[in-house]
């Protein structure tokens, strides 16, 4: 599912994934400052452990990913956090694999970054639960699309794979929407500066504020 395993994708997809992921991780690492580092570590740990929380769905079953939450809290720094989590999951749990590490990082990391661009600012300025929920759900949907796309690029049919993955992940979408929304609302109340640590386009005039 979300973690593609060794031997499913074709060579060019793996290679391209590795190169792009390396660039994204490098860019994300440069965005980690001293004040944000503890959150990166904490979020990486949450991501690492979240994969063990399972939701049984019919014949298959799926687990939490939390990439929406990582995205809105960390921004680009979510990519190295997710990379670290994936690497350790591959080593300790046998999830995913080393050759697909790059592709998996992109599949889960890019939706996180997209959620940050889309939802981080409205989450600070607007209703945090609603936008947090949107981020939680949106990230999973994008991740499913990414899985299907990676499979399609490796010569499988896009639609059946996408359907299979998306249907299986509907419960995760619901759970992550609730979870991310709740955490976002909580953070806004208790520690609002966390949500402002990494807002996109900070230098632009706050015209929409």
């Amino acid at each position: 599912m979300a973690h593609l395993v060794d031997g499913v994708l074709s060579m060019p997809v793996l290679a391209a994934g590795a190169v792009v992921a390396a660039a994204a991780v490098g860019y994300g690492l440069r965005r980690i400052g001293a004040e944000r580092l503890p959150y990166v570590g904490l979020m990486s740990a949450a991501f690492f452990v979240a994969s063990l929380v399972h939701i049984p769905v019919g014949p298959s079953n799926v687990h939490l990913i939390l990439n929406g939450l990582l995205g809105v809290v960390l921004g680009w720094a979510a990519v190295p956090a997710i990379f670290t989590g994936l690497l350790l999951q591959a080593m300790f749990f046998g999830y995913g694999g080393i050759t697909v590490l790059g592709v998996n990082t992109l599949i889960m990391g890019l939706p996180a970054v997209a959620c940050w661009y889309l939802f981080a600012r409205p989450m600070r300025d607007g209703e945090p639960f609603v936008w947090g929920a949107a981020a939680g759900a949106g990230a999973i949907v994008m991740t499913c699309g990414g899985v299907a796309l990676a499979l399609a690029l490796s010569g499988r049919e896009f639609l059946p794979a996408a359907q299979l993955v998306c249907v299986a992940h509907l419960p995760v979408v619901a759970v992550e929407a609730m979870l991310t929304g709740t955490i976002a609302a909580f953070l806004r109340q208790v520690k609002p500066e966390v949500l402002s640590l990494s807002l996109p386009m900070l230098r632009r005039a706050p015209a929409d504020a």
Binding site: M1, A2, H3, V5, L42, A45, A46, V49, A50, S51, L52, V53, H54, I55, S60, N61, V62, H63, L64, F93, G94, Y95, I183
Partner: peptide
């Protein structure tokens, strides 16, 4: 707290989901 909660659930059901 979140981390501990996740840890607790994961330990309560130490299973692998997506791994076939």
């Amino acid at each position: 707290g979140l981390l501990l909660a996740l840890l607790a659930t994961s330990v309560a059901a130490p299973a692998e989901a997506h791994r076939l």
